[in-house]
Design a protein around this nucleic acid. Sequence first.
DNA 1: TTTTTTACTAAACACCGTTCAGTAAATAAA
DNA 2: TTTATTTACTGAACGGTGTTTAGTAAAAAA
Lengths: 204, 204
Amino acid sequence: MSSKQRREREKEELRELILKEATQMFLREGYEKTSMRKIAKRVEYSVGTLYLYYKNKDELLYAVQGVAFNHFLNYMKPLMDIQHPVERVKKMGEIYLFFSLQNPDYYDLMFVIDAPMKAVEEGESWKKGEQLFHTLKYAVQDCIDQGYTKIKDVDALSMMLWSTMHGMVTLSHKERLRVMQVENEQIVMNQVNAMMIDSLFQTN
Amino acid sequence: MSSKQRREREKEELRELILKEATQMFLREGYEKTSMRKIAKRVEYSVGTLYLYYKNKDELLYAVQGVAFNHFLNYMKPLMDIQHPVERVKKMGEIYLFFSLQNPDYYDLMFVIDAPMKAVEEGESWKKGEQLFHTLKYAVQDCIDQGYTKIKDVDALSMMLWSTMHGMVTLSHKERLRVMQVENEQIVMNQVNAMMIDSLFQTN
DNA sequence: TTTTTTACTAAACACCGTTCAGTAAATAAA
DNA sequence: TTTATTTACTGAACGGTGTTTAGTAAAAAA
């Protein structure tokens, strides 16, 4: 009877081994360049076996995205200490930029990669993504409630903050900021974050 | 002697035919899904011939990006009529969103696709991309010079405006805005543009 | 002990970007 | 006009890709 338990444990272990190796390879080589054959070789099973544990390469990506979101959420932990909502939002921006520049590959997997995003509605890996967005939205709502801004639309304001960060990060990652011929992109990006906060919120 | 001219004209015609068909196919099927073999089949030459006219698939992409930038610049022509720099910047945002939502595939080819961006420094197709960015930068500089904003950093301000647009567009295209559960993304995106202009500029 | 289920493999299918030996036609030289 | 050379082009070949599936060996159930 316990042999059944053992076999299920072993299956779970293999499932996690595949996830671990796939994550490493997606980060090092990128999603497109990582083939199922290469992953199979790394975990020392045949390609076909991978398809017994994950329906296809997309499903494997969703699992890796879950790992990535956990990583991102860890970076956000210092927010706990900040009471002032405007400072909270500002700090979120700083952490967002810091994480994105330190982990461009994680970032790509979560927010850039072309993947069928039905996972958002179906829950699963994108629950963590929603959690991340709501952290921002609640902080923004606090700013509105406590009268730190004239803007009343939480959605529009949250979207603006997120989009600006996302825009800077992706233009930088894909090297499109080169047309600006700016010497230190990272510094300018943080200046933009501060500038945006100053313009949107009156903290006095 | 004129046969040489004719042959050069015919070469140029084939080069343009390849570009035309490649552009159509990149737009319809996307860059990754369009194979050199398929393009060859469409122009009714063999694969090898394509490599006599374009060094590789990347070079062909650069040429198509040139087409895309011309298209984008055409959309921007109505800006000519607008004198007020703040109105100009605002209108640029509106056109940017309009173009991006009407031509997601052109947009992808120019600003999203993973491609070696050495073309920026080497000139060629990205000259038009720089032209586009300078249109924004000059308008922003006018806003600063005429005292419509407290911000003095042209680069930071231009980058913020561009990044916000780019961020919204790409989050929308890649379906990541679904976590916001907003009913009409396009309307909210234009609200954000207006909101941003109002926050950054004092037009009185 | 026999049957059934499970976990796995290897080959096959239909694609991909790029290269290169070979060919046929046009041009230049004799 | 005949021969030699240059030009434009072809298509097979190389080493990859994601996914499916027939077959197999071992473990579990009957």
